[in-house]
Amino acid sequence: MSSPVELASLSRAPKVLLHDHLDGGLRPSTVCEIAAEIGHELPATDPTELGEWFRRSADSGSLERYLETFVHTVAVMQRRQDLVRVAREAALDLAADGVVYAEIRYAPEQHLEAGLTLDEVVAAVGEGLAEGEKEAAASGHAIRTGQLVTAMRHAARSREIAELAERHRENGVVGFDIAGAEAGFPPSRHLDAFDYLHEANMHVTIHAGEAFGLPSIWEAVQVCGADRLGHGVRIMDDIQVLGGIDEYGRPAAELGKLAGWVRDKRIPLELCPSSNVQTGAASSISEHPIGLLKDLRFRVTLNTDNRLMSGTSMTQEMTLLVERAGWSLEDLRWVTINALKSAFIPFDERLALIEGVVKPGYAQLGAG
């Protein structure tokens, strides 16, 4: 039986976030302040106006245009003190939104213009996240964070970044990712990095199946051995909806070989509804495949992607699914537990958060 959702209570729901870009979640006021200090020209200098500019620019329906907005956020994340500040604020903002565990990703190779080394970038982000965790806990909003070190798929530094990730695995780095425009840059171009990481027993997630379709997903899971799929929304290209309900009470559908493999292997999908609508990967929140994929029992997770560009938060993403896609409190609990099951931290830590934080938190809200 589904419990009714009181939207006002969703801010108190425990949340788990696996797909959130550090350079996509800055406070507009922080962008304005740092840009003024370093002399970087912005399209608007008022924080409110700047925030609106980011959202309008990201609403183009094109992933390539969406990615152009990062010119301004990356520009203000070059000095050590700025990386510490941005990471600290990210942890605080997520904790205030009820996020109890977050994996925050960024590409160290994009933060070297002021003379930092790759290792110094990772150390600065780690310092900021640790500061944010400590402050959040003191205010009664405990959060556990991990870093996902990202290599840009159009560049040629993935092996170097993979070694960087492995080198810092005892200092807060929990996994590796590749990101950037998919078309023309298949994940198999970085096979050397993935082979290295698999030998080192390190977790891997790959942006695949967002702007490009099934070949990108196939390479990510079958050639590169991804533990999770960043977005993966285009797995729908391998699912034929038949209409009606099957013998298990689920939507009747025929899964292709790849979709069946992804579901059978319980490969998590890091779905980001608002972002997917902005980039044209989905037509609307109500029509977003996350609902069907949930009903078909794929390992669905809910994420923000870029909170600044989408003007969103985990509470906002949950609210949209309740209002426009008919999700229940049990659905939100299920997707949150999915995310923790899929996290790149040790099993004991995941279990402790599920049993000690997530389940009690949803029970308090009325979820059975």
Rank of each mutant, 00 (worst) to 15 (best):
M309A: 14
H203W: 12
F54K: 04
A252I: 03
T301Y: 12
E49V: 07
S342F: 08
G213L: 15
V300Q: 05
L83T: 00
G256D: 10
R85T: 08
G256Y: 01
H111P: 00
M202R: 05
E103R: 11
S60T: 15
S275D: 11
L83W: 04
I239N: 09
P187D: 05
D23T: 08
E219G: 11
E247Y: 08
G126E: 07
V223C: 10
T279N: 03
E210W: 04
V204A: 10
I143C: 01
A124C: 03
L321R: 13
G230C: 09
G184N: 03
R350P: 15
I337M: 12
L191W: 00
L365K: 05
S3F: 05
A181K: 09
A107Y: 09
G291D: 12
S60M: 08
A252Y: 00
V74D: 04
E52P: 01
T69P: 02
A91L: 09
S3R: 09
P43M: 02
L321I: 00
Q278L: 13
L92N: 07
D331H: 03
L293W: 11
A181W: 08
E127P: 02
L242M: 14
M314P: 03
I337T: 08
G311M: 05
R12E: 13
R79M: 01
F212N: 06
W334C: 09
E103S: 12
G126R: 09
T48C: 08
H141M: 07
A162M: 08
M318L: 11
E131L: 15
A130K: 12
A253H: 12
M77H: 00
T304Q: 09
R85V: 00
D20Q: 09
